[in-house]
């Protein structure tokens, strides 16, 4: 077995109308990780997932799942994958347990009622097992789709926007489900619009833009590298400019001179203590202190904005 559960190399997808959805995508997904794929609408997230899962035929490039070529050895490759697509699509008249068992059979696995029960219980669907899918709420339907994807015990689970349009409570329970799966060794690839979700869940983050992977990094490394912390010092008496003595720090005045904002990296060796010493030496009196850090969302907007700049420059 290779270290990475999915290996994508030189993947291209150009649709019949000439639209290039994927251009030279290279990506390796590590076994057992939660990988979040971020990107604006139309960036190619769903096309990438659908290409790996066999719904879209690639124009060029190779995909290996557990070492199996996804095109030539598609049966072995697809047997390792569970897919939960973005749109809520369940057969309306089928019953929850029956539709879950159907998926297992479709993937060629022998009947295993104990496993189906465990999956349905994990997703709080066991009480609904004899209900028709059409009687379920949207969130429940989403769970049925996850149950179907897990019915055949996949090594990798693809969740395409699993929490889009799902209320806060359900989203939290979904996160718990995903963590539980990871704890059992299932690799998870999810796309999301909620950066908070990626920040909370993911081990690694990939950003896709205009059909190519703009960046892949460890989440904490990414946030350390690109994220910043802000220290806001509320002043007892307002200043009209940053004192010269403090010129070495990255300081800015805010709130009409009532606050000093110090921006520094997240890596932990910023001279915060020295700043306070220098504040006293400069005779700046302060009443309160606040810190916060940039969220993944800010990093993301910043990153997308930066790529925009580089692309527009000649």
């Amino acid at each position: 077995m290779t270290a990475s559960v999915i290996d994508i190399a030189g993947l291209y997808k150009t649709y019949d109308n000439g639209f290039s959805a994927l251009a030279d995508v290279n990506l390796a997904i590590d076994r057992g990780e939660i990988f979040a794929l971020l990107g604006p609408n139309g960036a190619g997230k769903t096309t990438l997932i659908n290409t790996v899962c066999g719904i879209v035929t690639p124009t060029a490039g190779t995909i290996h799942v557990n070492g199996h070529d996804a095109l030539r050895d598609f049966r072995a490759a697809r047997a390792c994958i569970g897919l939960v697509p973005q749109e809520l699509t369940v057969e309306p008249f089928a019953k929850v347990a029956a539709t879950t068992k159907f998926s297992r059979g479709l993937f060629g696995k022998p009947r295993d009622d104990a496993h189906i029960e465990r999956v349905l219980r994990d997703l709080s669907l066991w009480d609904k097992r004899d209900n028709s899918n059409r009687e379920l709420s949207g969130g429940m339907k989403r769970r049925v789709m996850i149950a179907k994807a897990l019915s055949h015990q996949p090594d990798v689970l693809f969740l395409d926007e699993p929490t889009a349009g799902v209320d806060v409570e359900l989203r939290r329970s979904m996160w718990n489900v995903v963590r539980g799966l990871r704890d059992r060794g299932v690799t998870i690839v999810l796309t999301t619009h909620y950066l908070e979700e990626a920040e909370l869940m993911a081990d690694r983050i990939g950003v896709i833009r205009d059909g190519h992977i703009a960046l892949v990094d460890d989440k904490t490394a990414l946030m350390d590298k690109l994220g910043q912390k802000r220290l806001t010092v509320r002043l007892s008496t307002p200043l009209d400019r940053v004192p010269d003595r403090l010129a070495d720090y990255d300081l800015a005045l805010a709130g009409d001179g009532h606050a000093l904002v110090y921006t520094y990296g997240r890596d932990g060796d910023a001279p915060v203590r020295a700043l306070f010493d220098d504040l006293s030496r400069a005779g700046v009196a302060w009443s309160d202190v606040d810190t916060d850090q940039s969220s993944l969302e800010e990093i993301f907007v910043d990153l997308i904005g930066r790529t925009d700049d580089t692309e527009s420059s000649p």
Binding site: C53, G54, I55, F74, R75, A76, A77, R78, A79, I81, L83, P85, E87, T89, V90, E91, P92, S103, L106, F107, G108, K148
Partner: peptide
């Protein structure tokens, strides 16, 4: 019917030809 309601995805992503 599966094409219309979208559940065809499952047939296409299953290890079947």
């Amino acid at each position: 019917f599966p094409k219309f309601i979208g559940t065809i995805y499952e047939l296409l992503s299953a290890p079947i030809s």
